[in-house]
């Protein structure tokens, strides 16, 4: 799953003109930047923040869908959903590892998430009251994630780009799975169709918000584009998503909840209604319906797991102490 267009990074940097030029030239030659290569501090900081937000989104994203694992309607769906949420955890793991190559520890990033300092994608602060939400999340949220992440496979930072290749393969599978759930509902009973439409109504606008503020408001975009961390602007990606998704909704016989949505022959794209940016800002600031519950759940798991992690460390230390004795005995 995905992290937002980057939220609030500071890409300012203090290196010499010559250093920055040489770095830019490497980026422009499409050379991958690797962990031990010289890089501007602003580049490192931007990536730490972006990869961190992305990793946190995967982890927090396990909660809304995890809400339905124990209630999935069939064994096939239950297994698929558990495997999907497990994939999200796996993505979190690669992403934390990718961020660690930039000199930040997983513990540090985890603490920032738990304290509420680090951000994660706003989409996961919406509740999942019905089974159809599982379909809508797969279809729309993973669909939006793919739009964002495919260009990240070409990101200038090597470890992030490589992590994204595997993540994208899995996301694309999740998206098809979500669409298939929606299709089953759309072809089902009246009650199921209503459930599908209701989920689309609730997830459409938050999915559009996943691409981040519009280009005129997005402060970090230019520098990120220059450094080829980012390849397309927020609005470009959002537009691509809409163009891909509208026909999918039509095929399902569902209605996109935007009365202003219409095809524009001139631009060869869909015009759409105004996004509620006040809602977006409120959710980012922690005032979405589920923000507090999400953080509470993460903190609870972390706190209740503390004794397990301590036990594992204590045991490993005992083992390490025992080793020399065993070696001695062998000699």
């Amino acid at each position: 799953m995905y992290s937002q267009g980057l939220i609030g990074a500071d890409s300012s940097t203090t290196e010499s003109e010559e250093f920055l030029k040489a770095f830019q030239a490497r980026v422009d030659r499409e050379e991958k930047i690797e962990p031990n290569d010289p890089m501007p501090e602003g580049y490192r900081r931007t990536l730490v923040r972006q990869i961190g937000q992305h990793a946190h989104s995967e982890i927090v994203g396990m909660l809304p869908e995890g809400n339905w694992i124990t209630r999935a309607p069939s064994l096939r769906r239950k297994i698929a959903l558990l495997a999907k949420v497990q994939d999200e955890g796996g993505h979190g793991l690669y992403l934390y590892s990718a961020a660690e190559t930039l000199g930040v520890s997983r513990e540090q990033m985890t603490e920032e998430l738990l304290s509420g300092k680090a951000k994660y994608s706003s989409i996961f602060n919406y509740p999942t009251p019905t089974w159809a939400d599982i379909g809508a999340i797969g279809w729309l949220v993973d669909g939006a994630a793919i739009m964002n992440q495919i260009p990240l496979c070409r990101c200038s930072y090597g470890p992030y780009a490589r992590a994204m290749i595997r993540v994208c393969k899995e996301e694309s599978f999740h998206q098809r799975q979500g669409y298939e759930i929606m299709m089953t509902l759309a072809k089902g009973s009246e009650e199921q169709k209503e459930m599908a439409q209701d989920a689309l109504n609730r997830w459409w606008w938050p999915s559009l918000m996943m691409f981040g503020p519009s280009d005129s408001e997005s402060t970090n975009s230019d520098q990120s584009m220059m450094w080829k961390i980012k390849r397309f602007s927020n609005d470009e990606l959002r537009q691509k998503f809409i163009t891909a998704t509208v026909p999918q909704a039509e095929y399902l016989g569902l209605t996109i909840p935007d009365p202003d949505l219409r095809w524009n022959e001139k631009t060869q794209a869909y015009d759409h209604g105004e996004i509620d940016w006040a809602e977006f800002k409120a959710v980012i600031k922690g005032d979405g319906q589920m923000n507090r519950d999400r953080l509470r759940a993460r903190n609870k798991a972390w706190d209740e797991g503390a004794w397990v992690r301590e036990a594992a460390l204590a045991h490993a230390r005992k083992r390490a102490d025992m080793k020399p004795i065993a070696q001695e005995a062998a000699e």
Binding site: I59, T70, L82, G90, L93, G305, A306
Partner: peptide
């Protein structure tokens, strides 16, 4: 499956 999202560490989630 009830543990999903609530395990003591990420490796154990998996």
């Amino acid at each position: 499956s009830e543990w999903c999202g609530h395990a003591p560490m990420l490796e154990e989630e998996l």
